[in-house]
Simulated assay, not measured.
Amino acid sequence: MYDFLVSVWRTVVPTLVGLVGAQATRLGFHVEDAQLTAWLTVAFSTVYYAAFRRLEQLRPGWGWFLGIARPPAYARPDADLLALRDRQ
């Protein structure tokens, strides 16, 4: 459950940063289109996440910019479960 919450938090933080970045962009420009604001939010969020995820791979401390300085760890499925899935 903890890894799930970590993954959600590490998604929320870049999204909030993207929203703030998109709104900050609007300070200098008059943007009325809600769809443009949505695309700017997605763009800022994606670039932010990708940059800090890459930096985190080089130095783990950069992970704090994603909310938590530890990426979630997912367990590998058992061989029995994989064999059962393959039979279906």
Rank of each mutant, 00 (worst) to 15 (best):
Y49N: 01
T25N: 05
T25W: 02
R53Q: 11
L58E: 15
Y48L: 01
G63V: 01
A69K: 13
T41C: 11
G61C: 05
V31C: 03
T37S: 09
A50V: 12
A50T: 13
A43F: 07
A51T: 09
S7L: 05
L40H: 03
G67R: 02
W9R: 06
T46D: 00
A50R: 10
L66T: 04
G67S: 08
R53T: 15
A43P: 00
E56N: 04
Q23G: 02
Y74E: 09
A69N: 07
P60N: 10
Y49V: 04
G21K: 03
F29T: 03
P14L: 08
R26F: 05
W39M: 14
A43L: 12
A50M: 13
F29G: 04
R26H: 12
D33E: 10
T11E: 09
H30P: 06
R59E: 10
V13R: 01
T11P: 11
R53E: 13
V6C: 14
Q23H: 01
W62L: 05
G18N: 04
V42P: 03
E32Y: 03
A50G: 14
A34H: 12
P60W: 08
R53H: 15
T15I: 10
I68D: 02
V20N: 02
L55Y: 04
P14Q: 07
A38K: 06
E32H: 14
R10V: 03
L36C: 05
E56H: 07
A69Y: 05
L58I: 15
L66I: 02
F29Q: 10
R26G: 04
A43W: 07
F29A: 11
Q57F: 12
I68A: 06
P14G: 00
A51P: 02
G67I: 06
T25I: 08
P72I: 11
A22N: 02
Q23R: 09
A73R: 15
Q23K: 06
Q57I: 06
P60M: 07
A50E: 06
A51R: 09
W39L: 12
R59K: 15
W9V: 12
Y49T: 00
A73F: 11
L55C: 11
Y49R: 11
I68V: 11
L66A: 00
